[in-house]
Simulated scan of single mutants.
Amino acid sequence: MKAPVQCAIVGCGMIADEYAHILRQSPAVQLLACSDLDDQRAHAFAERHDIPHAAPLDDLLSDDRIELLVVLTPPETHRNVAAAAVTAGACTYVEKPLALTGDNAAELLALAEQHGCQVGAAPDTFLAPPTQTAAAAVEAGLIGEPLAASAALLTSGPERWHPAPEGLYAPGMGPLADMGPYYLAQLIHLLGPIQRVDGVTATTRPRRVVRSGPRKGHIFQAQALTHVDAVLRTTGGVTITFTTSSDVHASTRPHLEIYGSEGTLLLPDPNFHHGAVRLRNRSQNTWHDLPQADSRWPVGRGMGVLDLANAMRTGRPHAATGDLALHTCRVTDAIRHAAETSAAAPVTLDAPASRPQPRGDRS
């Protein structure tokens, strides 16, 4: 067996517990260390997940044992933390978004290539059985030729459950950058790259109220768009209606549907790794659930880390790549541009960076 990839987590907030839970279920990685700006939180996280070391980020970057750094820090810090990691020679897996702009994401990937490091990025939900089942159905022609799709994130906002949601409404964020990548990554995985944003409307409800935790009742101002409607067009000509909103209190609109010449696929919420995939074609009067195969990895947040770790050891391609995350950033940029200009916007299509050789064991 290949030796496990020595891994460290940077950022020990809410999402980190899910990552640690998944990573500790696989022999592909070994959680060696963790770091957080709050030293007490880092040590508590290390104790909770039986991680040997909790240390400042600079110490992790200077530790040659660490091969893979998982970046779970606030979004505005993703690029800089990941850049420091690849400069130090560590492969990196970054929570979404990879960066706040496509240009910053592209700069990060170029830096990683320069230093011979691989980059993976969330979301990894499309690696889970539901999306893989849907992909197999599309490839098998169960809905005929894909013609159109609809995707909708409709919520009243993360302030319902997050005790400090202000950062999720910072400039460059909002539901489009925070939750949009889950939907965009699935759409791109299933239907191919997006090349054009044909129409957008955007509205903002700036006054928000924290509704949970010790700051419940605190009022703050959103500095990002809180409701965006877009029409996307893939390179293959599939038209997608796409909505991300933190202004909707209730809805019956499906999270994601794909419409083909012979039928329709209904997918579960792309934010999660579980749920039924339903099919109805022209010869059927009712929906039926498609059987789902088992996953090669423990299912949950962190699947993409395990996929990257496997690639580092075997040289095989991984799926939740920095290139895919860059493309989602480019689509987000185009949506914002269309919203600001009320005009159609092309999506920059970057050529995938050449894949560096895995660093392998450092022992």
Rank of each mutant, 00 (worst) to 15 (best):
L111G: 10
A134C: 09
I143A: 00
A135L: 13
P146H: 00
A149V: 08
C117R: 07
A148R: 15
Q114Y: 11
A128K: 13
A105C: 01
A137I: 03
P130Q: 02
T131D: 09
F126L: 12
L142T: 08
P146K: 00
A137W: 04
A135K: 12
L142C: 12
A110S: 14
A136V: 07
A122R: 09
T133L: 14
V119T: 07
G116V: 11
P146E: 05
L108T: 13
T101G: 14
Q114G: 06
T125V: 12
A136M: 08
L108Y: 13
E145Q: 15
V119L: 08
A121H: 09
T101P: 15
A148F: 01
I143S: 00
S150G: 04
A140E: 12
A110D: 13
G120P: 09
E145L: 12
A110E: 11
E107I: 07
G120F: 03
N104S: 14
P130G: 12
G144P: 03
A140S: 14
A136Y: 04
V138F: 10
E145K: 15
V119C: 05
A137Q: 03
N104C: 07
G120N: 05
F126D: 06
A105W: 00
A110N: 07
G102N: 05
P123L: 06
G120H: 06
L127G: 02
P129N: 09
G116H: 12
L147W: 00
V138E: 04
C117E: 11
A152N: 10
P123N: 15
L109P: 03
Q132M: 11
P129M: 12
A152E: 01
H115V: 10
A148I: 01
T131Y: 15
E145A: 04
E139N: 14
A151N: 01
G120I: 12
E139Y: 09
P129V: 03
A128R: 02
E113N: 12
G120K: 10
L154K: 10
G141M: 00
A105R: 07
L154G: 03
E107V: 03
L154S: 02
Q114T: 06
T131F: 07
L153A: 03
A106R: 12
Q118W: 04
